[in-house]
Amino acid sequence: MNLGDFSFGNLGHAYLPDKWIFRNYGGEVSRGQILSLLGPNGSGKTTLLKILLGALKPTEGTVKVNGQVAFVPQLFQVAFDYTALDMVLMGRAKNIGLFSQPTKEDEEASLRALEQVGLAEMAHRPFHEMSGGQRQLIIFARALVAEADILILDEPTSALDLKNQNAILEWIDRLARQKNLTVIFSTHHPHHAYAVADRALLMLGESNYAAGAVNDVLTESNLSKLYELPFRRVCYEYKSQSVETLIPVLRPTKTALASAESY
């Protein structure tokens, strides 16, 4: 097993004896790859991520990790109004002794990480004053400063506007390709998985999942089963290139319905 490799098998979690959220789940991702996790609300995405992180003991099954893991939680409220630098500095916890305080080197590393996400000038601004996208980037910087090999993100795009969603996807891609980090993230957007992930895991049901390469797993039929909505493959132009993605067939607009009825 190489540094940064991650695999889990026969994984199951029951919130009460014999009340399983999921069972017999398995998957793997190797160094520098991105694994995306898709599932409807209540399918146990966050539970699975917590188990992968090691914060929660699975009822059965094993998780094999080689390397340091860092976690980027869903956008959260901090009880105290720390500055961006204070937040990033916390990522150094593993490198700092129990009774020690962060040193100048730790602060410098944190400022460099903030620089990398383009927020160096915000170092002394309170975390609460920042936009959702900026906060997410600061938590990214915190993961960077931890010098982790594996990054686990819980719905990194769900609380953000479209522009920031795109920016976060760019970042996930860059971290995996340039820093050779293994990334695992959960999302509600099949397109996000399609856009950056190499592998996908679809939480279809209690002991029913689909895992594998994105192109094999993210199919019309799988996604239709997952979200109970029909999906269509569509082509669109991106930077004068023709690309394709999968979109859900949602309820059409009122005007479109009206004009369809008039025919």
């Binding site: 992180l53 914060a55 939680p73 105290f80 916390m90 916890a93 593993k94 962060p102 686990i152």
Partner: peptide, 17 residues
């Protein structure tokens, strides 16, 4: 300084070690 870390909450504090 560890109080800063604990004030993040259980899961997040665990995640940063």
């Amino acid at each position: 300084w560890r109080l800063n870390l604990l004030s993040l909450g259980n899961d997040d504090a665990f995640a940063i070690g």
